[in-house]
Amino acid sequence: MDAATPVVVRQGRRRPSGALEGEVLAALQRAGIPLTPREVQATLPGELTYSTVVTILSRLHGKEVLTRTPRGRAYAYAPLTDEAGLAARRMHKILDGRTDREVVLTRFADGLDEADAALLRQLLSDGLPRPR
């Protein structure tokens, strides 16, 4: 390529990392029932290929975010829990991987704003409610 040849920079429609997983998970949560990859594909905007949807669903299943049950020649996928439950699972996973749990929990609690710290104190003193 010589100096006169223009360089074309493509502005791809690529989503940020994890955005597709978030969109797929949100679609499944909105549905409220298990969906096959084809059904998930139909609910999403844009032109995602079937294989892309299957890959995303498989990754989410591998991360233990989704359950899957056979339905015909495919699987039907459903979230294991709601968004709050997923956030809690991520927090547990991080904490479980640490040997210095006390330090991690102390720094976490120290970083809370006053309202969240008061809520946490209240939850711990009242006994944690069990999610429904």
Rank of each mutant, 00 (worst) to 15 (best):
D2C: 06
D2G: 14
D2V: 06
D2N: 05
V7L: 14
V8L: 15
V9C: 08
V9W: 10
R10E: 12
R10H: 09
R10Y: 06
G12W: 01
R13D: 09
R13T: 12
R13I: 04
R14W: 04
R15A: 11
R15M: 04
R15E: 09
R15I: 05
S17K: 11
G18K: 08
G18H: 09
L20H: 09
E21G: 13
E21K: 14
E21N: 11
G22E: 10
E23N: 09
V24L: 03
L25C: 03
A26M: 01
A27V: 03
A27R: 01
A27W: 03
A27K: 04
L28I: 05
R30Y: 01
A31H: 03
G32P: 02
G32E: 02
I33A: 11
I33Y: 06
I33S: 01
I33F: 07
L35Q: 13
P37T: 02
P37W: 04
Q41L: 13
Q41E: 14
A42C: 12
T43W: 02
L44K: 00
L44Y: 00
P45W: 09
P45A: 14
P45N: 08
G46N: 01
E47C: 08
L48S: 12
T49P: 03
Y50E: 12
T52K: 10
T52F: 01
V53I: 14
V54Q: 13
V54G: 01
V54F: 00
T55Y: 02
S58F: 06
S58H: 13
S58W: 04
L60R: 00
L60P: 00
H61C: 12
G62L: 15
K63Y: 09
E64S: 13
V65P: 00
L66G: 00
R68C: 08
R68N: 02
T69K: 15
T69E: 15
T69Q: 15
T69G: 07
P70W: 08
G72K: 02
G72L: 11
G72F: 05
R73C: 08
A74L: 11
A74C: 14
A74P: 02
A74M: 12
Y75N: 14
A76V: 03
A76E: 07
A76Y: 09
A76N: 04
Y77S: 02
A78K: 06
P79V: 07
P79I: 10
T81C: 06
A87W: 06
A87P: 01
A88M: 09
A88W: 07
R89T: 10
M91F: 15
M91G: 13
M91A: 15
H92C: 15
K93H: 14
I94R: 13
I94P: 07
I94S: 15
I94T: 15
D96T: 05
G97K: 03
R98N: 11
R98G: 09
T99P: 11
T99M: 04
T99V: 10
R101P: 06
V104N: 02
L105D: 07
T106Y: 04
R107Y: 12
F108V: 13
F108W: 12
A109N: 02
G111D: 12
G111T: 11
D113M: 06
D113S: 06
D113H: 05
E114V: 09
E114Q: 12
D116R: 05
A117P: 09
A118P: 01
L119H: 08
L119W: 03
L119D: 08
L120V: 12
R121V: 08
R121A: 14
R121G: 10
L123N: 07
L124Y: 02
L128P: 00
P129T: 02
R132N: 13
R132Q: 12
R132T: 11
